[in-house]
């Protein structure tokens, strides 16, 4: 019976402590900096176009086949403001299938896709779990603003830097591209 009394003391102690539960809709617990929410597509501000060239690597490597992509010829390449011959035309992620594994980010060679902190994307629409290109790009821009994201490989992927390297005459001094250092997610706010 002594053990039972000890149990009583153990439980009653919590009555006088603050509950640990967070009242969810009012209080949101912050996610960790490395938190992997849904992936989004990033925006190359130097060329005013997405990083994504629609190379289909992420689509092929996705374990759940939650993505689809289609590319077309890049009009900016013809105009000479971008180094991407092809650019994404249509991209869709089915959030119902996405398992947030981050493989698409790992395989992307163009710094085009990133795991954002986007969650709580539930909607009442029947088809509401499909994110198309404009949605993904706007989420990507939000992520860039919020996290101070910098490309891992700016020489290759950022249009301004890549073009500047090809033609040093058009020196891209005013471009804000960040350093070549690998981005660290701990820098995120």
């Amino acid at each position: 019976m002594i053990a039972g009394l000890k149990g009583f003391l153990t439980t009653i102690r919590w009555v006088f402590k603050r509950p640990v539960t967070a009242n969810y809709p009012e209080e949101h617990l912050p996610v960790q900096p490395r938190y992997m929410g849904f992936p989004a597509l990033l925006w190359d501000t130097t060329a005013d176009e997405p990083f994504c060239t629609g190379c289909m690597v992420c689509v092929r490597e996705c374990p759940t086949q939650c993505m689809s992509a289609r590319m077309h010829d890049n009009p900016n390449f013809a105009a000479g403001t971008s180094h991407r011959r092809k650019i994404i035309e249509h991209f869709e992620i089915n959030y119902n299938r996405c398992i947030l594994c981050g493989i698409c980010v790992d395989v992307c060679a163009f710094d085009a896709i990133e795991m954002t902190h986007e969650h709580e994307l539930a909607s009442y629409a029947r088809n509401g779990a499909r994110a198309d290109l404009p949605i993904l790009l706007s989420q990507g821009r939000r992520w860039m603003e919020r996290s101070g994201w910098r490309p891992r490989n700016p020489e290759k992927n950022v249009a301004g830097v890549a073009l500047a390297k090809r033609a040093p005459a058009t020196a891209a001094t005013k471009l804000d591209t960040g350093s070549g250092k690998a981005p660290s997610r701990e820098d995120d706010a």
Binding site: I12, V15, P19, V20, T21, N23
Partner: peptide
């Protein structure tokens, strides 16, 4: 409410 507080929860609120 009481069970909630015993368990470190706020209970119905």
């Amino acid at each position: 409410k009481f069970l909630g507080r015993l368990q470190g929860r706020p209970g119905p609120n």
